[in-house]
């Protein structure tokens, strides 16, 4: 039963590797920010699934909640920064 969530977690981490390509190779800064946001969304789910695999979900769910909030705040802050300062590497 728990193995379903474990295999899903492995699959999600493979998908995160693909998202990492966009973060590393994206032509503009906004592309990188977006790739990081997509990875953060996947990490929230990954933390929850790993909690099921470890059998300590009541601890991991707090971490996941904090991670989701941190992801949201960091995306907002980086967007505001780009909004104020403009892009340096504009193609």
């Amino acid at each position: 039963m728990d193995h379903v969530f474990l295999y899903s977690a492995v699959f999600i981490s493979l998908l995160m590797l693909v998202s990492l390509y966009r973060t590393a190779a994206g032509p503009t800064t906004l592309d990188r920010l977006m790739g990081a946001n997509a990875m953060g969304t996947k990490t929230t789910v990954l933390i929850l699934f790993l909690g099921t695999a470890f059998g300590r979900l009541e601890m991991f769910v707090d971490i996941a909640l904090a991670y989701a909030m941190l992801n949201f705040i960091s995306v907002l802050a980086a967007s505001r920064y780009v909004l104020k300062r403009g892009l340096a590497d504009r193609p």
């Binding site: 906004l30 907002l76 967007s79 505001r80 780009v82 403009g86 504009r90």
Partner: peptide, 15 residues
């Protein structure tokens, strides 16, 4: 909200 913040930044940056 995050989506809107990013698309706003994109447009203001002139992409």
């Amino acid at each position: 909200t995050a989506c809107h913040a990013m698309v706003n930044a994109c447009l203001r940056a002139g992409l």
